[in-house]
Simulated assay, not measured.
Amino acid sequence: MGTLPSRGVSVQPLIRAATLDGYLELATALGLDGPALLAQVGLALADLQDPTSWLPAKRAVRLLDLSAKLSARPDFAVLLGDRRRLATLGPISIAVREEPDLRHVLQVLTDHVVTYNEALRMHLDESEGTATVRLWLELGVPAPLWQATTFAVAALNGVIRAGADDAWRPLGAHFPYSAPADVSAYRNAFGPGVHFDQPFAGLTLRTRDLANPNRLSDPLLRPYARQFLETAVARRGPSVTTRVTELVELLLISGHCSLTAVAKALQVDPRTLRRHLAAEGTTFTAIVDDTRAAMAERHLGSGGQPLTEIAYLLGFDTPAAFSRWFKHRFGMTARDWRKVSRG
């Protein structure tokens, strides 16, 4: 599962309405006017009535941020995450329920994340007995992300716990912001290993936990669940654009990103690679630009990396070059983007 996920599906990423399952009940319990808040961010009650419908992700992100502020509950997203059910994942919940162990559950979630949340990205790393699941959001526009990111971590934690032993807790839950005054909801959800001011959002667990059996799984139903998944999602192999995007991200960080280097890694000549990309409606330059945009959004939205460091991670020779590119790409400075993303 070391493959980085491909980029967004829609110009404006969408999420399933089922993602907000339980929102109205929690809002009412905390004294909020849920319908009024939905209207304030451009949503309506009718938008939540059909769990299979799709909503603009940026509106849901703003809804969570606004709800946390007006209720004076920085742990709003954690409380909402506790109300999530496996079915809110949509069609892939059937496959997730029948996967034999945690490793396969995470594989399905990562491979098919766009079937329930086009803005969400997931990546699993394993090193020295520890598995780390990193989560981040790519909206393409500045938005206060902390509540939405926390909600994604809480939802993942809930999916894992649904198939694990009742006593299971992650080794650590990590959040890229300072701890609120009251962390009891965090500890109830994630256990004692809650860490703030981290460079990423996500969960760490013992690598051996990946072999934990899924208690929801029925081996006799597993073949049917996978057949359903393949039919419902129409899974295909990675496109040339996807493979180039993955390599560009790796090479940007190394400082050796070029069409020639990517073509060599794919064992084709540069002219052939250009032709394949043109057949998919894109160019190498466009992929580099889009990859930089996604990486910039990820790094600006989590942790406190200096802008100079981010500039070099994106393959720019100087911070000034990064600043000019960012302003041209997003219409605002990277510093202003970071302020908005932190609410």
Rank of each mutant, 00 (worst) to 15 (best):
E98V: 05
R85M: 12
A87F: 04
D82S: 14
A119L: 07
M122W: 09
T115E: 09
R121A: 01
H104C: 07
L106R: 07
N117Q: 10
H104E: 09
Y116S: 05
G90M: 13
G90L: 12
E98F: 09
D101P: 03
V114N: 09
L106F: 06
A95W: 02
D82H: 14
I92R: 00
L124G: 09
T115P: 02
V96Q: 02
A87C: 04
V105K: 15
T88L: 08
P91M: 05
N117P: 08
R83N: 05
R83H: 05
I94Q: 12
V108Y: 04
H123F: 04
R85E: 14
G90F: 13
M122H: 10
L120M: 14
A87I: 10
Q107C: 01
T88W: 04
L89K: 03
T110G: 08
D82W: 05
L89A: 03
H123T: 06
G90P: 10
D111F: 01
L102R: 09
V96D: 00
D82A: 15
L124Q: 14
L86P: 00
M122Y: 09
R121C: 01
V113N: 01
Y116R: 08
H112V: 06
R103S: 14
H104V: 11
D111E: 13
M122G: 04
L89E: 00
V114A: 12
E98C: 04
A87Q: 15
E99I: 01
V108G: 02
R83V: 00
E99G: 01
I94H: 11
N117G: 07
L102Y: 04
A119T: 07
R83C: 01
L89V: 02
L124N: 13
T110Q: 14
E98R: 07
M122R: 15
A119H: 07
I94T: 14
P91F: 03
A87N: 12
I94A: 11
D101K: 12
R84T: 09
R121K: 10
R85Y: 08
D101R: 15
E99T: 15
L109W: 02
L109Q: 00
P100W: 13
A95E: 08
L89M: 07
Q107D: 12
V96N: 02
I94D: 02
Q107T: 10
V114Q: 12
T110S: 14
L89P: 00
L86T: 00
V113D: 00
A95F: 01
T88D: 15
R83K: 12
R103Q: 14
E118G: 10
V114R: 13
V113W: 00
I94G: 03
A119R: 03
V114E: 11
L109G: 00
I94Y: 10
L86F: 02
I92L: 15
H112T: 11
E98K: 05
V108K: 08
A119F: 11
T88G: 06
R97Y: 08
H112W: 03
M122V: 11
V105Q: 15
V96C: 06
L106Q: 06
S93E: 03
E118P: 09
S93N: 05
V113E: 02
Q107G: 04
L102N: 04
L102I: 12
N117A: 13
A95R: 05
H123V: 02
R84G: 07
A87Y: 06
I92V: 15
L120F: 10
H104G: 02
L86K: 01
